[in-house]
Design a protein around this nucleic acid. Structure first.
Lengths: 194, 194
DNA sequence: TTGGTTGTTGATGGATCAGTCCAGAATGAA
DNA sequence: TTCATTCTGGACTGATCCATCAACAACCAA
């Protein structure tokens, strides 16, 4: 055929994701993106369509990666409840830079979900993915007798997702690791029976 | 002296607040603001300095109003725990439009707290205001025997604030009132002793 | 009424925005 | 080597961004 692209599509999406994650959608210029991606203007437009399409692709990638990480962490724990604890405590254990960067999923919801139907759609599917993951691990915890059997895994799963998002907002607001641990600790008491 | 302004400063800040609340900072143009405020360009610059100053003033106003509302609601309940319950359930009881609009405080943190020190500063003072309000009511609840005396009011207060923020993010992500009630209900179990 | 001051208005500034065009370079197949 | 195809990079577009300027209008004190 003809001349092949000089860049790795996956790699440049990753770099674009980092910029959008850091700065948000509106505050990111195409110039910012091109510099970070290390490609030319036309290459970006040819490959991704426009800034919005690139954002959607980056967001999709973010969700896939962080969703997979959540599932992995929930299964890697030495017990279901410990795994949940570790997921919640993980935010508090991040570096200050990581806590400040926050969560691209949360940012996309807050900035764009109201005006961009595709972002809203991604938000919903992301919610379902995370809720389901939490639901599975809570059910597992019930099966193992780690939490009371009268616990409603659906409700608790929703609660845990909301807690993670609350933690991320608090972290961005400058909460100390101690404050974040407090929040996680109290949230965890919702599991211990009742 | 000289010619007085033709508009009410308080009123135009209120209108600007509504626009920033709805669209965020970056996505709001000065044109949007002027149209909503019903004043001329120069009047805006003379009165508020620039777009950023106007935003900061609008945010400050939002925080003062919503902080006062929180304190009021917490004191108006028929009992401390009921008051907390009502505050959490209030998000689920909002209209779809209100839920979609979200919380300007959360939006400001997510969009701007990292790059604007003054927003970060407002975020911190807002956090303290809300945490303190929650802390007081939890202490009151302990005093009345509504929650176990071994509950740490500081930690629970932090948790409750995080829960409200989690609820607001979930609401913006399109969660149903039922899902929001689930989250609030589970969060409330953290109060019931332990 | 007049003078000094301040508010309002419309025109306009340069900067930057997202996105397009085009000429030239690089590629692989024939 | 030749040719069709595709990628690349710089110049460029019109729109929009935030902000300023200058001329005019409105006000109050004297």
């Amino acid at each position: 055929m003809a001349r092949p692209k000089e860049f790795d599509r996956d790699e440049v999406v990753k770099r674009a994701m980092a910029v959008f994650w850091e700065k948000g959608y509106e505050a990111t210029s195409t110039e910012d993106l091109l510099r970070a991606m290390g490609i030319g203007r036309q290459s970006m437009y040819d490959t991704f369509g426009d800034k919005r399409r690139l954002y959607l692709e980056a967001l999709q990638r973010y969700q896939a990666e962080s969703g997979a990480q959540l599932i992995e962490r929930l299964q890697a724990g030495e017990s279901p409840v410990r795994a949940i604890e570790e997921v919640l405590m993980a935010v508090a254990a991040e570096t200050p830079a990581e806590r400040a960067r926050g969560c691209m999923y949360v940012s996309s919801i807050v900035e764009l979900a109201q005006k961009d139907p595709e972002v809203a759609s991604l938000a919903k599917s992301g919610t379902i993915l995370c809720e389901t993951a939490f639901e599975r691990i809570v059910r597992e915890a019930k099966r193992k007798g780690e939490v009371d059997r009268c616990v409603d895994e659906r409700k608790v799963a929703r609660f845990l997702l909301a807690t993670v998002q609350g933690l991320r907002v608090m972290a961005k607001a400058g909460a100390t690791p101690e404050a974040l641990r407090d929040i996680a600790a109290v949230a965890l008491t919702s599991l211990k029976s009742r």
